[in-house]
Design a protein around this nucleic acid. Structure first.
Lengths: 212, 212
DNA sequence: TTAAATACAGGACAGTTGTCCTGTTTTGTC
DNA sequence: GACAAAACAGGACAACTGTCCTGTATTTAA
């Protein structure tokens, strides 16, 4: 399996690499099969590390879970949501693009394992204060990024009674919930529908005044 | 603890009652602490039943989980969502009322344990086909009930390009996601915001034509 | 009344889990 | 090169989990 240079008992330490490999493996397991359903012996096998190495880097499973959230889940939200929305012309276009990307990726792999953040949020929020704080922080950054983009949309033709924070909250909630429904039905249909609905609503509300 | 009529070894069989007590206890545990985090010995203690009784009514934990979903979760969605929406004058009013009821109940108890259906959906959908089917069926009934009510709203002043199914999907998704965010932040704020946003959007789209 | 079926009691059991502990190897530092 | 610290190996261990099994009490049917 692993490369054996020449001598039978040769080892080369790579603490940083091993840690990354562990967190990567744990991220994949925790976000697909769940935190409690992923046994450490499976992670050790999949990552190719021994019990001693695991205990050295992460004294408890909880510490590993926390690292997964803070390192990988936060990064995933940044890469798949925040960055594309920021880079897009308008918020609506950004959201449309994000949904399209995620949908096509799910169709390619043929299974819906759900939103990593949402999966861990529902499983771990009430279990530990540190988990809750880490998850809440990611939700906040996500929401804030969308709200900022919405406010930027309004710079040109400013509309008074438009609450960017509220709309950003709706976007994040609708996406999270749509992904939950997609996971339950193992179909991307809820995502398609909610993506279209959200972009349509935002375009209406940001292009011109609405009610009242 | 339990009533002892007079003689020391007197027992009175109540299979139906015992079953209900078990499912109730399991529903409370599964929807707050989670399915995997709830050990059977805790359920036995809380419900006041022995291992033999449990095994007699539910041969496996999986069978108990399935009963919780089909009996209690489905009923909870019916009582807290479907019935109030059906009884309301309009869909928007119904949704507003549902959100208000849930929010005030959460504020009273001081903690957010999340939407029972959503909690179990994310934890169990990918674990078992029977779980997935049962959960998907509840989502479908929920969505359909809202869509029916939306179509009823339009009877008077019919609007052509209004997709009731799509809006119902958005409503369910937004609620589920908002509850997930509420659980992560242990605050009802996301629910308040999404409730207001949804009712506002629906009122706009059902009262008069929108874009195009 | 009797016999069979149902309902329940209570514990045994094997498998699994996360953690810890004792050694060995590698790496940095003087 | 010596030495301490870090990095890893590999297994022991106790606690816990779900399931099953044998026995007893209650209810039902005849």
């Amino acid at each position: 399996m692993a490369e054996r240079p020449t001598s039978p008992h040769r080892r080369t330490n790579d603490p940083e690499g091993l840690r990354q490999r562990l967190v990567d493996t744990a991220y994949a397991a925790f976000t697909t099969r769940g935190y409690h359903s992923s046994a450490l012996h499976e992670l050790k096998r999949d990552a190719g590390v021994t019990g001693g190495a695991l205990a050295h880097h992460f004294p408890t499973k909880r510490a590993l879970g926390l690292a997964v959230i803070q390192d990988r889940v936060a990064e995933a939200v940044e890469l798949t949501w925040i960055a594309p929305v920021r880079a897009a012309m308008t918020t609506a276009e950004g959201i449309q693009e994000v949904f399209a990307t995620i949908i096509s990726e799910l169709e390619r792999k043929g299974a819906v394992s759900g939103c990593p953040l949402n999966n861990l949020a529902l499983e771990l929020s009430r279990e530990d204060e540190a988990f809750q704080a880490a998850i809440e922080a990611i939700f906040l950054r996500w929401r804030t990024a969308i709200a900022d983009k919405l406010r930027a949309d309004l710079r040109s033709d400013s509309i008074d009674d438009f609450d960017a924070e509220a709309m950003a909250t709706l976007v994040v909630a609708a996406y999270s919930g749509a992904m939950a429904m997609a996971k339950a039905s193992q179909s991307v249909a809820p995502l398609k529908i909610c993506g279209e609905q959200l972009t349509s609503i935002i375009q209406n509300q940001t292009s011109q005044g609405h009610r009242a």
